[in-house]
Design a protein around this nucleic acid. Sequence first.
RNA 1: GAGCCGUUAGCUCAGCCGGUUAGAGCAUCUGCCUUUUAAGCAGAGGGUCCUGGGUUCGAGUCCCAGACGGCUCACCA
Length: 520
Amino acid sequence: MPADSDLTDLEAARRKKLEDLRARGVDPYPNDFAPEHTAADVHARCGSASQEDLDGGADAVSVAGRIVGLRSFGKAAFLHLQDRSGKIQAYVRKDIVGADTFQTFKAMDLGDFAGVVGRPFRTKTGELSIEAAEIRLLTKALRPLPEKWHGLTDVEARYRQRYLDLVANAEVRETFRVRSRIIDGIRRFFTARDFIEVETPMMQPIPGGAAARPFVTHHNALGMDLYLRIAPELYLKRLLVGGFDRVFEINRNFRNEGISVRHNPEFTMLEFYWAYATYEHLIGLTEELVVQLADDILGTRQFPYGEHTIDVSPPWRRIRIPEYVADKAGLPLDKILDLDLETIRAAAQALGVRVDPDLEKHHGVNAPGYMLTEVFEGAAEPELIQPTFVTDFPAAVSPLARRSRERPNFVDRFETYVVGREICNAFSELNDPDDQRARFEAQLAAHAAGDAEAHVMDEDFLRALEHGMPPAAGEGVGIDRLVMLFTNSPSIRDVILFPHMRAARGLGPEIHAVDEPSEA
RNA sequence: GAGCCGUUAGCUCAGCCGGUUAGAGCAUCUGCCUUUUAAGCAGAGGGUCCUGGGUUCGAGUCCCAGACGGCUCACCA
């Protein structure tokens, strides 16, 4: 217990009550009260009942929750209990519960957990309430709740002490309920289509499947470095080789990159692979998935996001990268399709897009493809507000995707954009092991030239492809961004319960690794 | 990583051009109060003004450095 001098007067008052309760033989932390109803149960059961109905003798209910409102008189009080379902008011009278219980009740504060047993009734203002025949202290809270009217608004405190944010802010609770329903809806969507859910390694000896910088950790017993995965792709494809020809995984990816309103170091991805399908099938499936989630969770296909109204009704708009750039820049499409560097450079100029000056150094012969993608993203992303499928990516930026039959410099791939953000990335999968090896080698060359995020060679993956991977299409969906969209949340931190922050002074980590990770 | 902005009581916030003992509401404590719902009435207590330097007769206020946070940009999904 902290020294008295370290306590605020609010904490000291609560500890005094704690000691007084113990002195009177009241356990401030019991675990023998089992509520039979939630607040919502009581409202559902009695919500339509009139005062006369209830006076006719309603059955007693028992509820438990945190005291989030308390209006106390001399010998009676009203309080609101909040549980997972919502709030219910209780009315406590000294002449009903008895002097001893009432004395215990007087030691309860805003923020304590309490259990109430009693019959529902209506107050004279009409609010459904429980007339307490019994009230129990279930947990004494030693620190006060945030202010009842303004709640907790300090963003730093909201993220660092999410538990207080959840207690104080109903819309935050709702956001995370929606998140849960989205993930549940995705599971049901895929299992209904005969996909099986799998879990592949989060710690990988070779970080593959995406272009990103990984976190490194170290396994002491094996004496080897492991990487937190940046994507599950190469493992899920191994499962296609193994005969699981419809698989999905919902799990975390980790990328050692910047933090922003759209980026958290760990984020949740849905990835799924569907054998004998193409990216065209995935376009239809993606529309179906999002529409079903919108119908089930929001009950509408038009909903607000910031200043926009998003409409997910299919079919969604489609844009082909070469056509878009040629058209916007007023340059010939055939030159773009040939990946003519000077034409693409002219397009960047015409569209006012600044391209990475190291592109050519890093990517060599692949540079035109990278540059075209940058030009497109720079020019188009801000206007991709309604759901849009962007197709015809250059093969150079898609080392795991199948080449387009009509446009061999391009691949059968799409990204889905909503509100200027990528939320899906999908393609027909490359299953030609020799082409895959050549693509890896181009990535290795880019890495050697200075691209820290280039893919690395994975010989076992190539060996698996040599055993034969069925033709397939695969897709990744950023769950956090989908939840942002559905909950009208401006920051990814609003949809991640415990987003990453710098260590707070005095509350930072005190554990240090015994074995330091070896130098990468 | 860069620029801009912020940090005052448990919470939400005032605090003017640098000038008495840093304020308010809620919360807390004491008293009264058996249908309130931001309950009410009367009184009281509560501060590392983010941290460390500096300027000044005097710093919450001005300057410098740092910590943490927000926004924008960069990287990226």
